[in-house]
Design a protein around this nucleic acid. Structure first.
Length: 572
RNA sequence: GGUCCUGUGGUGCAGUUUGGAGUGCACGCCGGCCUGUCAAGCCGGAGGUCGCGGGUUCAAAUCCCGUCAGGACCGCCA
């Protein structure tokens, strides 16, 4: 049907007879004698010259045959890759007429997202979406090759899985053959892949679809894809190597540059950046100020922890209203307040609270924070974790570059705490999942001080986005029993929820561990997008609905009855 | 569950602060003219429940309340 794609033709193709297919991007008609038709396919646009009236409209689907020729002197278009040539002596075959599109198929104008999603098939014609989904395809391909090269076996796991009431809310699938009973869609292949380890596939991977029925965000959809891996007889370092190879290959395939991956501990990340997913592209690190104010008379600074961030040269940019905005933001994040200080030309600190601080304190503050005239200092005093999180968020709010700004700064964050907070009954809550191996040095703290137990779990972070997480798993039932006990999971509970897994572990489970990389997020960053919807062909809106299909929809009562279900009236 | 932003012909916006006739810009659409344009140009035209409902007012796109939709964030995401 066609001999070439539109966007690939160049001066050296002059003289070639071509047949092109695509959509009418634009047309410029000059009466009955001459018309220019810009024909678009996914490779780009080429100008076709019709001798006569074209009688075409935007987005008509056409096949154009003609001869490539260099454009006449003075009519070339430097803005266009195909701008040196045109297709002449064209004959146009309309394959399908089209109504005017609901919004222009253009990268210049971004239509409202609800309209874009409703007519996604039109939106996907835009070169940005074409590019993004092709980036995604290349990333998948690079990753698959990297894993195969490293001896990993691709194995599919079930989409109809068993409920494991723990962690993310699961999508339920009622059983027709077993009325009243349910499958769930897997929130990840976590347990399945551990069973594959017991099954002797010591290097497994899958580009896996995961489903979680939680509220959506710019970086979260119900459905998302993971590079999911698990390996037996391995170490944390080896797993980092496997994954590092895959994401570096993917990054190189898109950007041409091979990234390095740094490593820092969770504690270090929290102290320096106030988050477990630090964006290493910019400074403004959190500065420890607790010793500076250890003997202060200023009540607001008589706290367990004081830290600050220095915003270089920002003092003139932050008037009273912006500073109030920062204070409100800090309070909304849980801080009692935010202390701001401007560094004046002579180095003096200008702040509503400056008068409460001694000269020595002010001098120590200035030197500790390496404050320069014109800087803005932001300080928070409170419990350590809160101080870290508030300042970490403010650091991002103020300093974080757009996603599309380079470079790609990958980091492993290691030694996460085993537990995070406590549940209603006072039992610690697993920070990762209950099969995570504690740090070997901290095993004995399980019974005495669980809050201090570090785990052998680790996250991969890229430019402030959590790309994924993983861990070395518990493969010994004695350690698993101790962890369950710490979590307050009784033997019966454990048997009911994970019996098949624990059973499998009795039949020769190798030491193993793994990781999962969120591919939507990786692709979004590599495509320079702030929102993963931009790299997903058919995403849901943030309400969880699909503006194109109208899903989710009610179904006929008979369909429900066949599944043993009945809808209740909406609760009030 | 909560906080905030947005909603104005098909599309993108201005108008809302300080109420005064659906007032404006650009694109698109329809018709006409046009033989080298390229975001073609020129002339003419059509197209509106200012998201929806209620209230205040002589008068509401504009102020108030509610609601719906889209988005960002908090909670949530082992």
């Amino acid at each position: 049907m066609r001999t070439h794609h539109c966007g690939v033709l160049r001066a050296e193709d002059a003289g070639r007879s071509v047949a092109l297919c695509g959509w009418v991007a634009r047309r410029r008609e000059h009466g009955e004698h001459l018309a220019f038709v810009d024909l678009r396919d996914h490779t780009g646009v080429v100008q076709c010259v019709v001798d006569g009236a074209a009688d075409l409209r935007s987005e008509f689907v056409v096949r154009i045959t003609g001869t490539v020729r260099e454009r006449p002197e003075g009519t070339t278009n430097d803005q266009l890759p195909t701008g040196a040539i045109e297709v002449g002596n064209c004959s146009v075959e309309i394959l399908n007429a089209a109504e005017p599109p609901p919004f222009p198929v253009s990268d210049r104008i971004e239509a409202d997202e609800s309209v874009r999603l409703r007519y996604r098939y039109v939106d996907l014609r835009r070169s940005k979406m074409q590019h993004n989904l092709r980036v995604r395809s290349k990333v998948n391909s690079a990753i698959r090759h990297a894993m195969e090269r490293q001896g990993f076996v691709e194995i599919e796991t079930p989409m109809l899985w068993t409920p494991t009431p723990e962690g993310a809310r699961e999508f339920l699938v009622p059983s027709r053959l077993q009325p009243g009973r349910n499958y769930v869609l897997p929130q990840s292949p976590q347990i399945a892949k551990q069973l594959l380890m017991v099954g002797g596939f010591d290097r497994y991977f899958q580009i896996a679809r995961c489903l979680r029925d939680e509220d959506l965000r710019a970086d979260r959809q119900f459905e998302f894809m993971q590079l999911d891996i698990e390996a037996a007889f391995t170490t944390q370092e080896e797993i980092h190597g496997f994954i590092g190879e895959a994401v570096a290959d993917a990054t190189e395939a898109i950007s041409g540059e091979r990234p390095v991956i740094e490593t820092l501990t969770w504690t270090e990340a929290m102290e320096r950046f106030g988050t477990d997913k630090p964006d290493l592209r910019f400074g403004m690190e959190l500065v420890e100020l607790t010793p500076v104010f250890s003997a202060t008379g200023f009540k607001a600074f008589q706290a367990a922890c004081i830290k600050g961030i220095r915003v270089p040269g920002a003092s003139p940019d932050y008037g009273r209203s912006k500073l109030d905005g920062l204070t409100d933001r800090a309070k909304s994040l849980g801080a009692k307040g935010l202390v701001w200080m401007r560094v004046a030309a002579g180095g003096a600190l200008e702040s509503p609270v400056a008068k409460f601080l001694s000269d020595d304190e002010q001098a120590a503050l200035t030197s500790t924070m390496e404050a320069q005239p014109g800087d803005l200092l932001l300080l928070v005093a409170d419990e350590r974790r809160l101080v870290q999180e508030v300042l970490g968020q403010l650091r991002n709010d103020i300093g974080r570059p757009p996603v599309s700004d380079g470079p790609y700064r990958f980091a492993w964050v290691t030694e996460f705490p085993m537990f995070d907070g406590v549940d209603d009954e006072g039992h610690p809550i697993a920070a990762h999942h209950p099969f995570t191996m504690p740090h070997p040095d901290d095993l004995d703290l399980l019974e005495t001080d669980p809050g201090k137990v570090r785990s052998q779990s680790y996250d991969l972070v890229l430019n402030g986005w959590e790309l994924g997480s993983g861990s070395i798993r518990i493969h010994r039932s004695d350690i698993q029993a101790r962890v369950f006990k710490a979590l307050g999971v009784t033997d019966e509970d454990a048997e009911g929820r994970f019996g098949f897994l624990l059973g499998a572990f009795r039949y020769g489970a190798p030491p193993h561990g793994g990781f999962a990389v969120g591919l939507d997020r990786l692709v979004a960053i590599l495509a320079g997008e702030e929102n993963i919807r931009e790299v997903i062909a058919f995403p849901k809106a943030s309400s969880g609905t699909d503006p194109m299909t109208g899903a989710p929809k009610p179904v006929d009562a008979r369909v429900l009855a066949g599944l043993g279900l009945r809808t209740l009236p909406p609760s009030t």
